[in-house]
Computed example of a mutant assay.
Amino acid sequence: MKLFKSISKIAIGLTLLIGSLVHAEVAVIVSASNANAALDQDTISRVFLGKTSNFPDGSQAIPVDQTEGAASREAFNDKVLGKSSSQLKAYWSRLIFTGKGTPPKESGSDAEVKDLVAKNPNLIGYVDASVVDGSVKVVFKF
């Protein structure tokens, strides 16, 4: 009986943990020195899908992805790009094959993406909103 109670407590704990991860807020960020104060979902999508390489103010926009499988990346792909990981792989495979584009560079975790973006006003990335600090500016949240 004690084993059953222990397993039940673990299961409840995991359910709460997974639930909190699913509902975590993701922030699209640029460097604090970037002139763009806010971006809409369409603009962000166009940058990350290689359809434009500029911010609305005309400055260069270089997207940075998180590592494949990261929770923030899965949420970003689904909510902002409207594509699954497999759809994005197929999308980029076609563009690479025809020489019409290259996917964003992968950079790792929330902290690594935040640090890279903070140092370069041309970069745009996304992180869990909990890691945002004064070194970056949130231009979109979901």
Rank of each mutant, 00 (worst) to 15 (best):
T98C: 00
A129N: 13
S53T: 09
P104A: 04
A32T: 04
L16Q: 07
L95G: 00
S45C: 07
F76C: 11
I29V: 13
A75S: 14
I96W: 00
I18K: 07
D78F: 13
A70K: 04
V28W: 02
F97S: 15
V117A: 01
S59H: 07
K141T: 13
T15F: 14
S109R: 06
S72K: 13
I12L: 15
K114G: 03
K114A: 08
V47P: 02
T67Y: 10
P56G: 10
V26S: 13
D57G: 11
I12Q: 12
I96C: 01
E25M: 09
L3V: 03
S6T: 09
I44V: 03
D42N: 14
A37V: 11
L17G: 11
N34K: 11
T15Y: 12
S45G: 12
A38T: 11
A37N: 13
S85W: 05
T102G: 13
S45M: 06
P104N: 08
G50M: 00
S135W: 02
G19W: 02
D110Q: 08
S85E: 10
K9D: 14
K9A: 15
G101M: 00
D78G: 13
S8V: 11
W92L: 05
S20D: 06
K9I: 14
D128A: 06
V132A: 04
A35W: 00
V22L: 13
G82T: 09
A90C: 03
L3C: 01
D78P: 06
N34G: 02
F48G: 04
K119F: 03
S45Y: 03
P56R: 02
E112Y: 06
S59N: 10
D110V: 09
G101C: 00
S130V: 05
I96A: 01
A75G: 10
D115C: 01
A118D: 04
A129Q: 10
T43G: 08
H23D: 05
G108V: 05
T43I: 07
V80F: 04
T15V: 12
R46I: 00
A90L: 13
A118K: 12
G69C: 04
Q87A: 03
E106V: 01
F55C: 04
V47W: 01
D115S: 14
A27K: 03
L88G: 00
G13W: 02
